[in-house]
């Protein structure tokens, strides 16, 4: 731990955060400047922020958190900024880790891609769709910009190679206690879905439904996360469908929804491009390659090699392959 405070601005966004804010402020005491941007809290959030010596900036409630982050990025006096939400915190050795990163990469990069642990309903989720969940939160002032979204990654304004990705294990992490229960998870997902902005064109309910299956498939990881994995995968799939319906209504209910109801098997065979486009492309490439080699046309062989590499898509590949044969 350094004797002098680290020249860094921590920006924290709060809204009724009295339960989690002390832990976060305690974990960033080593930062020279701390700004709490508060959205009309009705509890002791502001009082706690003052107690810890943070600069308090009140701001009106905003439907989408990401959009308002940009407005405060320039308020800090230091070159480097660490943006955190009130339900996040850093570990005991964060100071040493941040100091080390800035000393080693401060010249060569403008932002760090920091992994994040997510705790949902009392459990740290380790399926690959929830972890390492890299976030761009530690960056040089003026180099990052968020869109008008909710909890999406910001854009790095300089160059992709100026982003340094931290590879776990054994590196700085953000610790995020997202939801204390499934009920709270549902509540937030609905709010985010209702407050999001949806495009004016390009609506396809089939795509939303296909994404729902994709979400379920990729989020499900019983081995790592047990029974809770089923609940979360189901909720994330449900979230896609709910978003599709909100989008559909906002566009005046013009499109037909019924085509999507022949899913899932029909979707994968009828609209294979909606599901795993990257995997499908890779499969196509291999088929072409093998077909060009005389005497090698074994479908089984293609599938086997592909399965070995991508075990998770095993079952879906069978269906995609079936579609190819047609």
């Amino acid at each position: 731990m350094g004797d002098e405070m680290l020249e860094l601005t921590v920006i924290i966004h709060t809204r009724d955060s009295e339960a989690t804010l002390p832990r976060l402020l305690e974990s960033v005491r080593w930062a020279e400047e701390c700004i709490v941007v508060d959205m009309e809290s009705r509890d002791r959030t502001c009082e706690i922020a003052r107690q810890y010596g943070a600069t308090l900036i009140p701001t009106p409630m905003a439907p989408r958190i990401d959009g308002i982050r940009n407005a405060f990025l320039e308020r800090g006096q230091h070159e480097w900024v660490f943006v955190l939400d009130s339900d996040e915190y850093l570990a005991e050795d964060a100071e040493e880790n941040v100091r080390g990163l800035l000393a080693q990469y401060g010249e060569s990069c403008d932002a760090f891609f920091v992994p994040r642990y997510n705790m949902i309903a009392g459990q740290i989720i380790r399926s690959c769709s929830w972890y390492p969940d890299h976030q761009i939160r530690l960056f040089r002032k003026g180099c990052v910009r968020w869109g008008d979204t909710t909890h999406k990654l910001p854009e790095l304004l300089t160059a992709p190679e100026r982003l340094h990705k931290l590879e776990p294990p054994g590196c700085l992490h953000i610790h995020h206690e997202n939801y204390t229960s499934i009920e709270q998870f549902i509540d937030r997902q609905v709010k985010y879905a209702l407050n999001d902005i949806y495009p004016e064109d390009g609506f396809s309910f089939q795509q939303y439904v296909a994404k729902a299956y994709e979400e379920f498939f990729f989020r499900l990881d019983e081995k790592n996360d047990g029974e809770l994995s089923f609940a979360l995968a189901t909720l994330m799939a449900w979230d896609r469908v709910v978003r599709g319906l909100i989008h559909w209504e906002r566009l005046g209910r013009k499109d037909s929804l019924s085509r999507a109801y022949s899913l899932p098997i029909a979707t994968i065979s009828r609209y294979p491009d909606y599901v795993f486009p990257n995997d499908l492309e890779e499969l196509r490439r291999r088929v072409q390659m093998l077909e060009s080699a005389p005497g090698v046309k074994s479908w089984a062989r293609i599938v086997k090699s592909f399965r070995r590499e991508r075990r998770k898509v095993k079952e879906h590949l069978k269906r995609i392959l079936h579609c190819f044969r047609k």
Partner: peptide
Amino acid sequence: ASPRPYLGTSFSDRRVRLLRFDA
């Protein structure tokens, strides 16, 4: 630096405090 960090709720005893090191 446990691969899956311990949680405060992991230990039912309130006399236990956690200190997490990422590295």
